[in-house]
Design a protein around this nucleic acid. Structure first.
Lengths: 168, 168
DNA sequence: ATAAACTTTCAATAATTATTGAAAGTTCGA
DNA sequence: TCGAACTTTCAATAATTATTGAAAGTTTAT
């Protein structure tokens, strides 16, 4: 198998997985392609390799930059822009976690807190159940949050392995 | 605000969040409704409350049962089926994590291992970069896996809080 | 100031995914 | 065995989301 074939298989699968997680296929594919390439690529190169329109590459590239998964690079003597992935996988994961937290966890937390602050009218037992749910979900999200904190601090594996042992 | 209004707001938001994570809106809404109700509900009641067709409720309910987030219940003297959510939030989370691991992490792991086992032809430096990426992603997924293990073992909060302190 | 090189935008369109609802299937009491 | 009560299926349709590509916008060298 040639390297190019392997890259393309990786790009395809990454796209499919991304889709399942609510990330546009093209965005995930572009990301995979840049990850697989040590050297930075131009918009044209990306368009050509994964057969996407200029607009699509442009928009998704911008989004990847928003997520801090990709950054622009200029090449000496070249006018066009080049793009490289964040190649450090841990840093990449950190950025993904933080972005999703900000985009999806925060809004739920706000809803939960808002609903918890309301005085509700209705059947008492049902109200208690509902408010209990709100609290449990809130606690749960906080735990998730803490878990991600732990994880982000795991620069080296020492504590990590120790913890696993402790818990087993 | 009445309890019913609060429930509906919760249902709506849960649906939106679900969507962002690649879960069908209706499925997330049904789940939220069942979570919010202490008592089990029939298909009809769900249809009525969130305005969904019978087919939709049926299909998504089945999926929720596959995910082990909901289970059927029969009521004495009633012919129709009733449904209740898994009300234990930790158990719920566990089921979601396991299901997603099985559905989305495993396929990636298989791809990575397959690509790592291939002998690649092409530029040596690029091949090294690519194989390095495969390895790092593989390691990363294993870490995720271990992290979820740790978390699933956290029945009570004691170790958890201790760990956070250690890491801080 | 001009024009070539390059990037961005966004309305139109395509592709995908979710939903409907009516018909077929099942279960069960009489 | 019948039929009412209920559940399931799935082709058709609707809704949503992603993608295109051409035109407008921007930058830069001369």
């Amino acid at each position: 198998m040639t390297l190019e074939e392997a890259k393309m298989e990786f790009v395809q699968t990454w796209g499919t997985i991304g889709s399942a997680w609510g990330i546009p296929r093209s965005m995930a594919q572009i990301h995979a392609l840049l990850l697989a390439n040590k050297e930075s690529l131009s918009t044209e190169e990306v368009m050509e390799t994964i057969q996407l329109s200029r607009g699509n590459v442009n928009i998704n590239m911008r989004e990847l930059i928003n997520w801090k998964l990709v950054h622009k690079q200029s090449k000496l003597g070249e006018r066009k822009e080049f793009f490289t992935a964040q190649h450090d996988i841990m840093a990449m994961a950190k950025n993904i976690v933080e972005e999703r937290k900000r985009r999806e966890l925060q809004p739920v937390q706000e809803l939960l807190r808002q609903l918890r602050s309301e005085t509700l009218e209705g059947d008492n037992a049902e109200i208690e159940h509902f408010q209990n749910l709100m609290q449990e979900l809130d606690d749960f999200i906080q735990q998730l949050d803490q878990l991600s904190e732990i994880w982000l601090k795991l620069k080296d594996n020492y504590f990590f392995k120790k913890m696993i042992k402790t818990m087993s």
